[in-house]
Amino acid sequence: MQVYSVPKSIKENSTFTFCPGCDHGVAIKLVAEVLDELNLRENAIAIASSGCSVLLYDFLDVDCIEAPHGRACAVATGVKRAHRALKNDKFVFTYQGDGDFASIGLAESMHSALRGENITAICINNTNYGMTGGQLGPTTVMGQVTATSPLGRNRQYHGFPIKTAEHIALCEGVSFCSRVALYNVKNIINAKAQIKKAFEYQQQGLGFSFVEILSTCPTNWKLSPSEAHKKIEEEISKIYPLGIFKDIKND
């Protein structure tokens, strides 16, 4: 009996263009599996963003529009509202990096969350600007060496990073907000469950749902894929704790 196959929402013959061992591939696979399981593929519109996540439309077999850098949640707002005005309800989600969601696009992200736009945002947090070669981003942790913090992130010189999920959870319009990681099978299975919940909350019209995914960037961290996972488990997930920060069904 076949117990695993390539998700139907992944384009046939598509090959991920990420670096070896990058968690983006796992994250997109999970999104595709959830789209399959909830039978959303034919009703979904994905919003791609700038950065490593930009080529989403090359991998996911759903209608997709690329947003300018940081504006994915604004574009998603327009897509969702327009279809509602046309008397259709479409499933709309963004797939963004932490730089896109929480730095250049923080205003659009947070205001979509505050308004309670009935969309889902997936944010890949790999603690740096990966596509451009690993510069200091809004989530770069204290002490982390990057291409633009060669001596390590420093409180006086660079200032503090943002804890994205914790901030989004404070917004009244948010239905579900969690942070997950992908460093082992158990966490990947949990991440999928959280993505599924976020998608279901949108289907139920409950408002903005959000999943922040702690991800590796082996190339820019200058670690092997396995070492990078270890870093998430032992360091990053201590600074950005995993868990559900808001669930309007339980709160």
Binding site: Q2, V3, Y4, T15, F16, P20, G25, V26, K29, I188
Partner: peptide, 20 residues
């Protein structure tokens, strides 16, 4: 065992099928 763990962690979906 056909446990699918290898497929779950593969970031490339290079493990395309698992049978048990």
């Amino acid at each position: 065992l056909g446990c699918t763990q290898c497929a779950i962690v593969c970031p490339e979906i290079a493990i395309t099928e698992v049978y048990r």
